[in-house]
Design a protein around this nucleic acid. Structure first.
Length: 435
RNA sequence: UCCCCGGUAGCUCAACCGGUAGAGCACCUGACUGUUAAUCAGGGGGUUGGGGGUUCGAAACCCUCCCGGGGAGCCA
């Protein structure tokens, strides 16, 4: 009885007879030599069958094997330099568990890649494609690295609620639901809650899905995306900038170390990732405006950067670039004003290199009760809904800071792909929620 | 919400000035003892997104609706 082994572990079973349970990825034949390429989730392996070395009845079954049929295969592991993974299987036996008929996603040839309009409704099957497989494994590594990074630094993970009673930054971008007759909204940020939690635990972070009903239809937007949001008591702007640099450097390093094969499947130029080392570039909003003016781009002080501006700024650097101290009037109420210049706030955005755009937004928070109350009034926000948040400034208020990193944009950048829709298993896009 | 582009075989595309639908891949049949997107030979496969109009004649031109893609704004 052959032992069930995963393809990724085959190298340590050379010479042994093993069982592989998986799906047919591709097959080729040259008359009396037949090749089956299997995938089992852990990797891909080619197995070989030569007429005469297996029973004729089995040899004939080759023609019944269709793309994506599920099979259990028994074979002997052999070192093989010609094979991409370094190992190959000599087939002893196989059984078809279920024969797939007319698999709707064709074998991908470069000139023949189906349109996303075709692939997206088949996302449940598209996940099996090599590129998608590689992407979601990189996502997994980033998610694990996030947990490791913060736990190594003794942060406490605090799960923020997904159903929230009120709007943090206006209701137009919120998904509204019914909560026993009261309106409730899907969370678009856990920030206010981790601000409360950091006063209990010092260093905290939340990590989960967030929801924005923005009518955005670009390669950088999803209606449902995952965000990690650290928040630290007694941290000021410089501290949070330093933490964000260390964090991003760590994530890139982990993917480089653990997902070499996947990056290669995606054709990622890893040399560019190897340059992601601290210190990152750090410039003020004013510096950024100067860069744009030097490039003869039309831009007024006080405007926010659009996609073109972000690209132009990030192209000036090989590392990610942090832009800090934005004009106060384009930033939300909870950001602390710069004591040295009340026109700007103590915030920071981090732009990924190669034109991948903003991956982090963070700030030092307003910690003074009266100032914050005044900001609520200026913005016409419903103070009653935020009494609990104001309480944090009444009972032992301290300077504190945090940031949010959108993981899909981080995955897209590190993987070198174009669109966020491939960085999440089942993307929620504008007016599209199937499957 | 706005601005562009597109919809022809299962997939990717072609079809000249409007003249009556064609290729590669996939699939099926056959050949081939080392294929790496195998190759070679043969075969089946179409209400050209829907509706209306112009015309002797429409995949093509006009109107309209539907669907898809790209971008802007907003943001992570």
């Amino acid at each position: 009885m052959a032992k069930w082994v995963y393809i990724e572990d085959l190298k340590s079973h050379i010479g042994e007879e093993v069982e592989i349970r998986g799906w047919l990825y591709n097959k080729r034949s040259s008359g009396k030599v037949k090749f089956l390429i299997l995938r089992d989730g852990s990797g891909f392996v080619q197995s070989v069958m030569v007429k005469g070395t297996v029973p004729d009845e089995l040899f004939q079954q080759f023609k019944d094997l269709t793309l994506e049929s599920s099979i259990v295969l028994v074979g002997t592991v052999r070192e093989e330099k010609r094979a991409p993974g370094g190992v190959e299987l000599d087939v002893k036996d196989f059984k078809i568990i279920q024969k797939a008929v007319d698999y709707p996603i064709p074998k991908v040839r470069e000139e023949n890649i189906p349109d996303v309009g075709v692939l997206l409704p088949k996302r449940h099957l598209w996940l099996r494609s090599k590129k998608q497989w590689a992407l979601l494994r990189i996502r997994d590594t980033i998610e694990k690295a996030i947990e490791d990074f913060f736990h190594e630094k003794k942060f406490v993970r605090i799960d923020s609620p997904i159903l929230t009673p009120s709007a943090c930054e206006g209701t137009t971008t919120l998904f509204k639901t019914d909560y026993f007759g009261e309106p409730a909204y899907l969370s678009q940020s856990g920030q206010l809650y981790v601000e409360a939690a950091c006063m209990a635990h010092g260093k905290v972070y939340c990590f989960g899905p967030t929801f924005r009903a923005e009518k955005s239809k670009t390669r950088r937007h999803l209606m449902e995306f995952w965000m990690v949001e650290p928040e630290i008591a007694f941290f000021e702007l410089d501290d949070i900038m330093a933490l964000s640099e260390e964090f991003v450097e760590y994530l890139v390093k982990r993917v480089l170390n653990e997902r070499e094969e996947e990056l290669s499947i995606l054709g990622r130029d890893v040399k560019k990732l190897e340059k992601i080392k601290r210190p990152f570039a750090r410039i003020t909003y004013d510096d950024a405006v100067r860069i744009l003016k030097d490039r003869k781009m039309e831009f007024e002080w006080g405007d926010d950067f659009g996609g073109d501006e972000e690209t132009a700024i990030s192209e000036a650097f090989e590392t990610p670039v942090i832009i800090h101290r934005y004009p106060a009037k384009i930033k939300p109420f909870y950001m602390k004003r710069d004591p040295d210049n009340p026109d700007v706030v103590l915030n920071m955005d981090m732009l990924a290199p190669e034109g991948y755009g903003e991956i982090i937004g963070g700030s030092q928070r307003e910690d003074d009760y009266d100032t914050l109350l005044k900001r609520f009034e200026e913005e016409n926000l419903p103070v009653e809904d935020y009494r609990w948040y104001l309480d944090l400034r009444k009972y032992g208020s301290v300077p504190h800071s945090g940031f949010g990193l959108g993981i899909e944009r981080t995955i897209v950048w590190i993987s070198g792909i174009r669109h966020v829709r491939e960085s999440i298993p089942f993307p929620r896009l504008l007016e599209k929620i199937y499957p």
